[in-house]
């Protein structure tokens, strides 16, 4: 099976991996809100903070480069369309940087937090409103995140198989895209069915969460550091 890196959880022993998922989820939520609301100076601080996280998490940046190409292309499209629409290149650049920062935050979260832990954190957050709905949301999040690798692997396998059969990338692109999407969808549906049978066979239940949460001193420290960064970023807005 292909080994994609992007949006996969990797079990490493780094300070970020050891953090309680609730503190990471909180930081991610605040960072995401700030990315969309802060001016350029604040955005740069958030980017710096995220980049530090990526280095601490030991993410293999070189290997990620090729797999992140799609998001780079998307950022370029955002930049060009915004530039074309507003005639302000700086604003267009900031728009695409905001998008890339969100992608990096998402990558950092999925890289350092297992789907089981994400589900536990989401359940903890929602359980006060409705336990049943919280179980449902947590199970769905867990299954969705666990299913990412299956989708990426299917896309990679199919595209490599077509390449090995001498498919020309630029020849009849629309027809190629439709044919490839249909093939990918077929494979994903088959695998989803197989996985759902296997989960059922192993007694999967929505109301049983796996693993446990443990809040430690490092989480409090992380939240303090994050708050400091958020405050600094917000202060950057206030300073003219």
């Amino acid at each position: 099976m292909a080994e994609r890196l992007i949006f996969h959880y990797h079990d490493r022993d780094t300070p970020l991996h050891r953090l309680d998922p609730r503190s990471k989820m909180f930081a991610m939520a605040v960072l995401t809100i700030m990315v969309f609301n802060l001016p350029p100076a604040g955005l740069l601080l958030i980017m710096l903070y995220t980049a530090t996280g990526i280095i601490i998490a030991g993410m293999p940046i070189r290997e990620y480069r090729r797999e992140s190409l799609f998001f780079g292309m998307f950022a370029l499209i955002i930049f060009l369309t915004r530039w074309w629409g507003s005639s302000m290149p700086l604003e267009a650049l900031i728009g695409s940087l905001r998008f890339l920062t969100i992608v990096l935050i998402g990558m950092l979260m999925t890289e350092t937090t297992s789907p089981d832990d994400m589900a536990l954190a989401l359940f903890w957050l929602l359980r006060r409103f409705s336990r049943r709905a919280a179980y449902g949301a947590a199970a769905r999040l867990n299954l969705t995140v666990s299913f990412f690798p299956v989708i990426f692997d299917a896309v990679q396998e199919i595209s490599e198989a077509r390449k090995s059969r001498q498919e020309q990338r630029l020849r009849r692109p629309l027809q190629r895209m439709i044919s490839m999407s249909t093939q990918i969808l077929d494979v994903i549906i088959d695998r989803a069915e197989e996985i759902s049978y296997a989960l059922e066979s192993r007694g999967f239940r929505e109301d049983i969460l796996h693993g446990e949460l443990s809040w430690g001193r490092r989480d409090t420290l992380f939240l303090l550091l994050s708050t400091l960064c958020f405050t600094a970023a917000t202060a950057a807005v206030l300073i003219p």
Binding site: E194, L199, R202
Partner: peptide
């Protein structure tokens, strides 16, 4: 690969037991 759901070998073995 369809049947393995845990992040580590021991977590995977624990999955079915936790469900019971």
């Amino acid at each position: 690969d369809s049947q393995i759901v845990g992040q580590t070998v021991s977590r995977d073995i624990a999955f079915g037991l936790e469900n019971t």
